[in-house]
Design a protein around this nucleic acid. Structure first.
Lengths: 189, 189
DNA sequence: TTCATTTCTTAAACCAGATTAAGTTTTTTG
DNA sequence: CAAAAAACTTAATCTGGTTTAAGAAATGAA
């Protein structure tokens, strides 16, 4: 049940059987159907989610009422609104299942406790956040240098399988333009 | 000499005298004059920099030849091109001193060694990267929801002192628009 | 197996911000 | 302190992408 997470952790650090057992009571497996909300705007984000199977998206509603998708998480990624999760403050975001999705969740309190009990996880999460920061640096570079059309072409080239998994309006909002414009780009090809 | 870094670390974890002494030989203090380069495009980024005093910026040159500033680092922030630093690959970025700047630098090799010798630093850097990731989430949210004018007004409100520290063309490129447009916004007020 | 809902497309009018180009002010340096 | 270099401003023109609005296609639920 928790094996996918253990497999992932063991790619970065080596946990003993004993350490794995300490982990178990802190982990909450659950499953969500398409369009279910794991977090809604105004709520405090209690959980950090590890995606076992499926796809989650993080989005907010801008002043004009449009959904803006800022992140997707697929298999083996962690996702949360960290401003809300770390400081237990109300969130501006929604976390929604883009597909039927299985997750392993950990609460903010358990997260802190766990890091004390299993210090090897400090290294694991240090490496996870290092990777997330690196991904953000690349992402921000793209946001600064690509036109809308280039973003789509490039994303399509890098992640052709993923493009098939989510509706176009979600992808458009992630890439930073309107669904109408995405249609226009696609019509050209 | 290394005190500013020890002070910063001790805000997050408590290092013993002994642990501090282990750190010392891994740290390289240096000073750069305005416009000096700490990293240039094409070079492999050897260092992760902690800013003691002054201001660094991370930027790249886009296809049109324009500078795009993706990050600033002031006192008590770490800065590097992590794609290049972590995997020792050539960088697309420049790191340049926006003011006379004192840094404490650590090489990629020493970084890895240090984390082994002083495990408490795993927690320190986990917290640093957690904070960087949180900052990126906020940053990306802003990039998705604000007009150019709102970005400037908002940044000015949040960091009035910083706006005075850097030339306007750097700020314009950080906020994602042209220096000409920044002039236009300022003229309106 | 149809009706309702969600998603996608098309096209015209529009606009925020870029581009271009010239001139002005400020800062740096010899 | 004078000349050169760097930084900033102004204004006209242009454009990539938005907005609005309507209809078509796909998906899902009963």
């Amino acid at each position: 049940m928790h094996q996918p997470l253990f497999n992932h952790i063991n790619k970065f650090v080596t946990l003993s059987e004993g350490e794995q057992e300490i982990l178990v009571p802190f982990l909450q497996s659950s499953s969500f159907k398409k369009k279910a909300f794991l977090l809604e705007q105004g709520q405090t984000c209690r959980m950090n989610y590890f995606v076992v199977k499926g796809c989650l998206r993080l989005y907010f509603i801008d002043v004009k009422g449009a959904e803006q998708t800022t992140q997707f998480a697929i298999e083996n990624w962690w996702i949360s609104d960290f401003s809300s999760f770390l400081f237990q403050q109300p969130s501006d975001f929604f976390i929604q299942a883009a597909e039927i999705t299985e997750v392993i969740a950990i609460t903010n309190q358990d997260y802190e406790k766990l890091l004390e009990k299993v210090p090897k996880l400090e290294k694991y999460f240090r490496l996870i956040f290092q990777k997330l920061h690196q991904a953000s640096q690349i992402r921000i570079k793209y946001l600064y240098s690509q036109t809308a059309e280039e973003s789509y072409t490039n994303f399509n080239k890098l992640f052709p399988a993923f493009v098939q998994r989510v509706p176009q309006y979600m992808l458009a909002s992630y890439l930073g333009f309107t669904p109408e414009f995405l249609s226009k780009i696609r019509a050209k090809k």
